[in-house]
Design a binder for these strands. Structure first.
Length: 152
DNA sequence: GCCAACGTTGGC
DNA sequence: GCCAACGTTGGC
């Protein structure tokens, strides 16, 4: 089992939005970065736990837990010219982008802020706080996962 | 709103 | 294959 962190802007789609979806499940479309795609496609397995991270907001940080409920399949929004995530170079017979379905698990009692994560020597290797990291999907070590949860 | 840090694109 | 220009991410 692998552990993950996925970023989302709460103004677009936050942890509360996920919780309100039917069954607490939503597809995670719009990933347009190859590194992130590869992790989604090759790494994510059903049942993998995910930290839900709020970015680009008042208090960036980890706000909840989700899990992978469906493994990678083609991201259809790439084919839709009217969609925000449309990729004109992408044809349905050769899907370039994929998505997974994530399911709501729980909200943390409080936001574990980015500042707090940066402050912890135990999390030195965490991809999230490596300089210049802009990946929307990244792996989390089990030891890091456990430590972060212990901060709650 | 600013800006650093990337990733992508396209001319050559 | 190089690299400048451009677009995006995301903290602050």
């Amino acid at each position: 089992m692998k552990y993950w962190l996925m970023k989302s802007e709460p103004g677009e789609f936050g942890i509360d939005d996920l919780e309100k979806r039917p069954g607490g499940i939503e597809h995670w479309d719009g990933v347009r970065n190859y590194q992130a795609r590869n992790m989604m496609r090759d790494g994510m397995k059903r049942g993998d736990p995910v930290f839900f991270y709020h970015s680009n907001c008042e208090l960036p940080g980890i706000v909840g837990i989700a899990q992978i409920v469906r493994e990678a399949y083609p991201d259809h929004t790439a084919f839709d010219p009217d969609h925000k995530h449309y990729d004109p170079a992408c044809k349905p017979d050769q899907p370039r982008w994929c998505m997974v379905d994530v399911g709501f698990v729980s909200k943390l009692k409080r936001t574990i802020s980015l500042a707090e994560l940066k402050d912890r020597p135990e999390l030195e290797g965490l991809a999230l706080i490596r300089r210049g990291n802009r990946l929307s999907i990244m792996p989390v070590e089990k030891s890091q996962w456990d430590f972060i949860l212990s901060l709650e």
